[in-house]
Amino acid sequence: MTASTTGAGPLEHGGRGSRILVRVLVVTALIWTLVPLGWMLLSSFKPTAEVTAATPDVWFGPTLDNYRNLFSGGNNLGPYLRNSVVAAGCSALLATALGALAGYGLARTKARGKHHLSFWIISTRMAPIAAVVLPIFLIFRTLGLIDTLPGLVLAYLSFNLPFAIWLLNAFFAQLPPALEESAQVAGCTSWQAFRHVILPLTRPGLVTTFVLCLVFSWNDYAFALVLSGPRTQTLPIAASQLVTQTGIDWGQLTAIGTVVVVPMMLVGLAVRRWLVTGLTMGAVTGE
């Protein structure tokens, strides 16, 4: 790994050799990370013929045709976008809310079998989707949830909720119970202590949880494919629709890829600082 060391400087400084090595590694990682994304972005502005040119082409007359095609004519992407926003947003919000309640309860309960309970919660996230999708489809069908946004929200909860509970539980567990106790001595109810003392302290955790849940559900394909209908298709479904019998329109596909990816990146980057502190507080004490 980091090889040479000259003497015993504090870690942040290290030797010149190792500093250069660090930079080289970071730059390499950046290239490895960004080239595919950059290429996708670039290709989405290319005229159709150049997207699949045998020799990669960097100089071309940029065009918005691919995007224009996505938002016009028979396949207007607008509704897909709206469905994705609503379904993923609501699911992440609900997961964070329910996860905060349950995570707190789990952290504070003294019930026997608490460890079993918490393992059961996380194990529900491990279910292979292809196996459980048929029963879920039939249950949803009965409840009239097929082709509805609430149905998608509920389905996304099946993987978001365990994750949210698990992550937030870790936050609450590392806050000393003395906090609520002193609040209760001051006359608060248990709920008020939770609401006004504990919750504000875990804001980074809540944001982190919300964002990760948002990303997971925004990106879901398997559930959306089965449970959505004509009215509730989401963006990843739209992407797969470009794989047609007579070929893939790579220009449009890279455009839709960009449309799917950019919002999540923006959200993710907007809260990056919170992500690190969030995970620092939670994961370090991870349960």
């Binding site: 950046l30 960004l34 993710g268």
Partner: peptide, 20 residues
Amino acid sequence: SLLLLPMFVAPVIVGLLGRF
């Protein structure tokens, strides 16, 4: 910030992009 970007990409897009 830049290094985090791939984790926000939908797996189905990663697959199609990989194919591309």
